[in-house]
Design a protein around this nucleic acid. Sequence first.
RNA 1: GAUCGCGUAGCUCAGUCGGUAGAGCAACCGCCUUUUAAGCGGUAGGUCCUGGGUUCGAGCCCCAGCGCGAUCACCA
Length: 527
Amino acid sequence: MLAPRIRITQPCPIEGGYRTGMSVTDSTDRTESDLVAARRAKLARWRDELGIDPWGSRVDDLLALAAARALFDEAAADAMDAETPPETDPRPRAVVAGRVVQHRAMGKLCFMVLRDESGDLQISCSKAELETASFKLASKVDYGDIIVAEGPVGRTKRGEVCIWADRFEVHCKSLAPPPEKYHGLTDAEQRYRRRYVDMYANPETMQTFHRRSEIVSAIRRFMEDHGFLEVETPMMQAVAGGAAAKPFTTHHNALGLDLFLRIAPELYLKRLLVGGMRKVFEINRNFRNEGIDRSHNPEFTMMEAYQAFGDCESVLELTESLLRSLAGGVVSFGDLEIDYDPPFDRIAYGELFERTHGCSIFDEQAIHALAKKKGMTLDPNANHWLLVEGMFDEAEDAIDPSRPTFVTDFPAPLSPLSRPHADNPDLAWRAELFIAGMELGNFYTELNDPDIQRARFTEQLNGITDEDAAFRTLDEDFLEALLVGMPPAGGFGIGIDRIVMLLTGQTSIRDVVLFPLLRPAGGEEDS
RNA sequence: GAUCGCGUAGCUCAGUCGGUAGAGCAACCGCCUUUUAAGCGGUAGGUCCUGGGUUCGAGCCCCAGCGCGAUCACCA
């Protein structure tokens, strides 16, 4: 809605008014309105004086700008530059569309650069080659307008490949003031809040998200090529299982039912193994009500996959092969040069721990003493394994960030969903993959003994806080499924966003998530 | 949640010792047929994040808040 103080210098033919995607404070609206008003005025003039519909229409046979550029034919361009150019123009023709990102008008000639997903291309407009109205449009378009041009693909005297337009149309008037044409939009907050501007103003952004789509697509292909079936399991769950994170809550009115957004799909995917699917995977969102930082967004994309008659080892190898195929070798990430050639490094959890802390994960007295010394807050009957877990973060830092590394043989008490070693029930067939200091994924030989599974769940529920108890309950139906019988299996989950970060060199998850979660703009308190 | 940093024109940024607001781009008017962040001349554009305080005087100093970022904590 328009703030009452907005000044409009020309009658505004558009009803409804203009709303920025930004702050709605009066000051912003008012100062912005001068620039918006100028564009509205121009739009009205085009309508009234040139009879133009500034909102465009269908255009067939459009070429991407990169494709149009690729049509450039040097011989044809040379021929046109010759003393006596051929009677019929030998240059290939193209119809293109894009957003105006540069514009240089000089009297009877004007140049502009269009941008689309594929890249940039200059459009050159000569007054001699265009209808009067079209040339007037071309010399007056604003940064941000979306235009369609058609003509021969040639070059300028300076050798710039361009389209010499003999058709020029505006297909969408941009009313919002654009960011600075050279620096683009650099303010991180504005880039996330107005991603649609970031995407066109900063080509790297567009490139990153194209790459993300290609990566996800390649992962799908890889999994399908290995015989995995893609499935979709509930995002809304009555019991938020499969991980130990805090869930978001929601409510179904008709059923009068409180539900959780899933923190993991694991318990449902395993049910599919019980049902008889042999290899399944799911790429979808998980939701965890935890902190936000460079590697955590509350909603994030995971791939989980389960392979009946596989084990932890088989899914480790599958993942090595997957990452190798995605990365293709060495990929730099920040200061790191990460080599994805398998086999990845491996180190046992206990060994890594001992290397860092100098004591065995099994030495309860030493661990307790160490925890005390580190001033870890602990109640007197603190569980030994929770202490170990608390100290493990430090050990993670000992992993070479430039080497993809599997940490294997996690403590079974910290791995309630994985199968314990036969010769040491304190260790589980579970590994985690670390790259660049980030946890990339989890790998298991799945626990399919319903009695042990019930015992693990029950242990885990003992001694949890009241807060946690509110959403951690026993998934009886899952245990029922295990009674029906799940084949032995390997399973894993990997963070897709983090893989995209690694492969695109983005060190913040917000730069690989199109719309990362931010506090709503405007500062309106809602409590 | 803690600590630190940042918040000035639509955008990108200056702003000295506390002395009353600056540039470039964008916009508007004019000139220009080979520009490449085009150029030249002119005009206009500000709740200096918000609210308090100190001061004769605050963009600048102090307090509180809001937003963003970084680090840490949390996240099997």
